[in-house]
Simulated assay, not measured.
Amino acid sequence: MAPEKKIVIEDENEKATMESVVDPAAETPDEKGNVTHSPSDLEAQLAAARAEAKENHDRTLRMAAELENYKKRAARERDDLRKFANERLISQLLTVVDNLERAIASAAADNQNGQSLVDGVSLTLAEIMKILEQNHVTPIESLGEPFDPAFHQAMCQEACSDQPPNTVVQEYQKGYLIHDRLLRPAMVVVSTAAKNGNADVKTVNTNA
Score class of each variant (00 low, 15 high):
191 S>C: 11
206 T>P: 02
111 N>A: 05
10 E>S: 09
24 P>I: 00
200 D>S: 11
197 G>A: 00
203 T>L: 08
190 V>P: 01
81 L>C: 07
140 I>K: 02
193 A>K: 14
167 T>V: 05
115 Q>A: 14
126 A>G: 04
108 A>K: 15
100 L>S: 06
199 A>P: 04
109 A>M: 13
70 Y>V: 08
35 V>I: 04
42 L>M: 08
208 A>H: 07
111 N>Y: 10
146 P>R: 11
129 M>L: 13
54 K>E: 12
157 Q>M: 15
190 V>R: 09
64 A>I: 11
20 S>D: 15
185 P>H: 09
80 D>E: 13
111 N>W: 02
206 T>G: 01
156 C>R: 04
206 T>C: 12
130 K>G: 10
7 I>P: 02
102 R>E: 14
63 M>K: 05
197 G>N: 06
104 I>D: 07
167 T>F: 07
92 Q>I: 03
89 L>V: 14
68 E>C: 01
32 K>P: 07
147 F>Y: 08
91 S>D: 01
85 A>N: 03
64 A>Q: 07
193 A>V: 03
76 R>D: 01
95 T>F: 07
19 E>T: 13
128 I>P: 01
94 L>A: 00
99 N>G: 00
131 I>R: 07
96 V>W: 00
59 R>M: 06
125 L>S: 04
205 N>M: 07
16 A>D: 12
45 Q>R: 05
103 A>R: 00
79 D>Q: 05
160 C>E: 14
175 G>T: 02
49 A>P: 02
65 A>L: 09
126 A>F: 03
144 G>I: 07
69 N>Q: 05
97 V>G: 00
20 S>E: 14
190 V>E: 12
